[in-house]
Nucleic acid binder design. Structure first.
Lengths: 163, 163
DNA sequence: TATTGTTATACTCTATAACTATA
DNA sequence: TATAGTTATAGAGTATAACAATA
């Protein structure tokens, strides 16, 4: 069952003196684990780089698409970003409350809400983009061009798992 | 600045009839974005595979390490998994409330809390491991052995960004 | 009937700050 | 002084279920 069991509590003095030497017992072989850890590290670097601008990765993605597609339907953005409708609602509510975007009624389909970035939203997004340039440069610096292309391609394949 | 701008609202009829053709405007070139989307897709497959077992990725990682290192200090686990002490507290509180692990006082260092998996915790973890085997097989199936090694290595490099 | 948005609700992760006790 | 754990608090993402308006 347990394939390995190197140090245990039996050799207490050793275990205590080297608390960092932890047995991962295969956990670090799980792709899901590695992916989560990598995402966590990148996310923390993102937050540190953004600093006081206070726009999360998700919020940035929404603002980015809204600015690139003025009047896009709320559901279309959520769909493009793989987000639930309810999740999208909460997110857009926050952005709207901060005055970064506004909802308007579609004249083509009365069910739809069209999203537009406000001037304040565009201005913030530009500042965010500048910070993200630095953040992306820093993390991409870890790879050569071929490695970067490979990584992007393999990540895309994981994303395509859910159609 | 904006390197692309393929379809816009100018060709309104086209934009409306093809709401799925959304201009990502370079968003999908961000490594942080791709990483988050890949993680989201894998996470949803994880949740679907785990079903009623109700153990999150983080909780699984903690149980995994606790079972592999009986009596390990709470802080050591959080440290190994890149988690804040307060975050770790909340997580262990939930696992303890469900009877999956227990805290005990360390006799070596009275500040420490040693973590042990309960029989119920071990039993649940085993069931979770079986599901994860299927989950991991499904996502790893997307890659050949060389690609998988490459992906793991590149993800590890991102994780190492924060020392 | 299906789609779009909405509200209510709940859970988890994450982090900051301040506190206790121990080293 | 520094460390380990704790508590309080807050924000954000995620999801389910039920509902209204519209297609």
């Amino acid at each position: 069952m347990a394939s390995r069991r190197s140090r245990s509590v039996q050799t207490a003095s050793v275990a205590v003196s080297t608390p960092s030497a932890l047995d991962f017992a295969g956990l670090d072989q799980l792709l899901g684990y590695r992916l989560r850890r990598a995402q966590g590290a990148v996310h923390r670097d993102y937050l540190a780089t953004l600093g006081a601008l206070k726009l999360t990765q998700k919020q940035t993605a929404v603002m980015w698409l809204v600015q690139g597609n003025p009047g896009v339907a709320q559901g279309a953005v959520g769909n493009a970003l793989g987000m639930d409708r309810a999740t999208m609602m909460a997110l857009v509510d926050r952005l709207e409350a901060r005055g970064l975007l506004r909802r308007s009624h579609s004249r083509i389909d009365a069910r739809r809400r069209e999203l537009h970035a406000t001037p304040a939203g565009m201005q913030l997004l530009q500042a965010v983009r500048d910070r993200i340039d630095r953040h992306e440069s820093r993390i991409k610096r870890e790879f050569n061009p071929a490695e970067l292309r490979t990584l992007q391609r393999l990540l895309q394949r994981l994303q395509d798992l859910e159609r």
